[in-house]
Write a protein that binds this DNA or RNA. Structure first.
Length: 573
RNA sequence: CGGGACGUGGCGCAGCUUGGUAGCGCACCUGCUUUGGGAGCAGGGGGUCGUCAGUUCGAAUCUGACCGUCCCGACCA
């Protein structure tokens, strides 16, 4: 048995801390490799991870920050089951979702595992909240979610079982919801700032939650799965799923009186057309045919743009790319030559940018394109925003240029409205005696994703470089020498002195591990300060301190060592 | 779900093409030496080669199916 913990400090001997020299071959993400190597997590199966004691230290620190800030806005912690009767999910229509784990109990009752907790919290709210006097309320938990993800990936970044801080607000009216939403905005800002990660708050789609307004909290990282568009000062920031921008306007020159055909043998792709015509891609129209249950749809964007599939799907519903033989049937030509002019039986949706200018587009004849096609004159189309914004295009808010950035989603907030309260009968009696649905919001944070994002954002060749607030320990004290030596006695004393000063210390007192190995493992783990106590240190010091981030060596005097270490630690960013 | 790759002691890998005694490094155990940057020497333990079926006198090696894991895409807080 290891020695009992001294506040948040640990003696290392006897503890489970399995580090690895090599990362498992199937780990790809930096955070995944380092978390496994640094003995924080182990994988059980795809998307299922055990968090080891050292990983728990980090998660505990994150959760503590979350609890403090949630409590500070008056949210109340509770805990709901992760095993739910299916009927409740049937009432909101979310029972059949593909991500839902479904099972039966021994009597054959249909059950589900908690994908999220809107249904259950609303079920409780329906029973406990009766009057306008009971509102507003905010309830939260830090608890398990289970999702049958089509593809777990990236280590801890996308998993099938994970802890989430989820909170839910209950208000009388929209103004109340706005206030609860604002309170969460404040709490979230404090949480992510205190965690020491870089983050952006962006406008987001409401996704499977439904509702009417949402933001996501995004930690920039190349390992991220989402992309955001934002201005340098954050005056505009949105997930590209709904980001808008002012497109570059090409010089169109005079508009031809009518479309003019020209030969483009064997040419279909936009870059081939650019070389052939010498025109910028923005003056070509890119025509994409997809198929919905209601038939074919032709989507048109400028040649430099990409159709954003989610934006398109919001307008036309689920769809797939058309097969070449289908295109041949509807347009009478191969995919490279299709265009909007003269087609029948095909719904045409043009991006709003197409409404100005004239374009080179397919003539619906193999090897022929047209110059000078004008929307409204030569063809008709619904216009909508269906393109993905491009880096360098400008903000619709203030004209600043937009940058695109890959990000990890670490939190989100949703204005749910009455979707769940109406479905589950969560109503209250107003002052005027009328029954109304409770107005709800829901708010999520993934603690393990914060940890993973922190590592993605901060590591070097030697290992993790923790932001101070998330480090499993503040100080990593390395003892060189046997337990019965003078330096060991001194290290023991320093260990308890540092702990008394409020620092969490990992005291590497293992007798059987060589100094070099201790140093390497300390850097792999990445606590902000490493102290070395060896024979050399005594009697007069100094004690060597290494600042992990800079790997700079500092000298700590033996007299008043603990206070000096505390001071060094405090001086770090 | 589509495409690709890979499954050999705890981790990293070789062996497979050309079938014939299962190997290397690290880790682990014992002993001695060593103690400020993943120690040295000596000895030792641990593997149904993912599973099943087939071909063969004989399969880690060839064939097939299945399972698992990872990556890209689809999907997704």
């Amino acid at each position: 048995m290891p020695a009992a913990p001294l506040a948040g400090s640990w003696r290392l001997s006897g503890r489970l801390w399995p580090t690895l020299r090599d990362a498992p071959a199937d780990a790809e993400a930096i955070s995944h490799k380092l978390m496994v190597r640094a003995g924080m997590v182990r994988q059980l199966a795809a998307g299922l991870y055990t968090i080891l004691p050292l990983g728990m230290k980090v998660i505990e620190r994150i959760n503590r920050i979350i609890r403090e800030e949630m409590d500070a806005i008056g949210a109340q912690e509770l805990m709901m089951p992760v095993l739910h009767p299916a009927e409740i999910w049937e009432q909101t229509g979310r029972y059949p979702l593909d991500e839902q784990f479904r099972l039966e109990d021994r009597s054959g009752r249909a059950m589900v595992l908690a994908m999220t907790h809107e249904e259950i919290i609303t079920w409780h709210a329906a029973r406990e909240l009766r009057s306008y006097r009971d509102l507003p309320q905010s309830w939260y938990q830090i608890h398990t979610k289970l999702r049958d993800e089509p593809r777990a990936k990236g280590g801890l970044l996308r998993v099938r079982e994970f802890q989430m801080k989820d909170s839910y607000s209950f208000d009388r009216d929209d103004a109340g919801l706005d206030a609860s939403y604002q309170a969460h905005t404040i709490a979230y800002r404090r949480i992510f700032d205190r965690c020491g990660v870089e983050w952006h708050r962006v406008e987001s789609d409401t996704g499977m939650m439904g509702g009417r307004g949402a933001h996501e909290y995004m930690a920039p990282s190349p390992a991220g799965e989402d992309v955001i568009a934002r201005t340098a000062d954050g005056s505009y920031a949105a997930n590209v799923e709904l980001a808008v921008s002012v497109a570059h306007e090409p010089d169109f020159g005079p508009t031809p009186p009518e479309p003019v055909p020209f030969d483009t043998p064997g040419v279909g792709a936009i870059d081939e057309l650019v070389s052939l015509t010498g025109l910028p891609a923005a003056r070509l129209s890119k025509n994409l045919c997809v198929v919905t249950d209601d038939g074919p749809v032709l989507a048109i964007v400028r040649g430099e743009h990409q159709v954003h599939e989610k934006k398109l799907a919001k307008i036309i519903g689920p769809n797939r790319a058309a097969h070449p033989d289908e295109i041949e049937r509807w347009f009478g030509c191969p995919p490279g030559s299709i265009g909007p002019i003269g087609v029948e039986g095909v719904r045409v949706i043009a991006d709003a940018t197409i409404a100005t200018g004239h374009y080179v587009t397919g003539a619906n004849r193999e090897g022929v394109h047209l110059r000078g096609a004008v929307l409204g004159r030569d063809f008709s189309a619904e216009t909508a925003d269906i393109r993905e914004v491009l880096e360098g295009e400008t903000s619709v808010v203030d004209g600043q240029p937009l940058v695109l950035e890959k990000v990890i989603e670490v939190g989100n907030i949703f204005k749910l409205g009455t979707r769940y309260s109406e479905a589950l009968g969560a109503t209250y009696l107003g002052e005027d005696g009328n029954e109304r649905p409770i107005i709800m919001g829901s708010y999520g944070i993934g603690p393990a994703r914060i940890a993973a994002a922190a590592i993605e954002q901060s590591s070097d060749d030697a290992g993790i470089v923790w932001p101070k607030p998330l480090a499993p320990f503040d100080v990593h004290l390395v003892l060189i020498g046997a337990p019965d030596t003078e330096q060991a006695q001194f290290a023991d004393r320093l260990f308890s002195d540092l702990t008394d000063l409020g620092l969490d210390v990992l005291y590497d007192d293992r007798a059987s591990v060589k100094p070099g190995e201790k140093f390497v493992e300390a850097e792999l783990l990445g606590c902000p300060v490493r102290l070395t106590m060896g024979k050399r240190t005594l009697p007069d010091g100094p004690i060597e301190a290494q600042v992990r981030a800079s790997r700079r060596a500092e000298e700590i005097p033996v007299d008043g060592a603990a206070a000096a270490v505390r001071e060094l630690w405090e001086s770090l960013p």
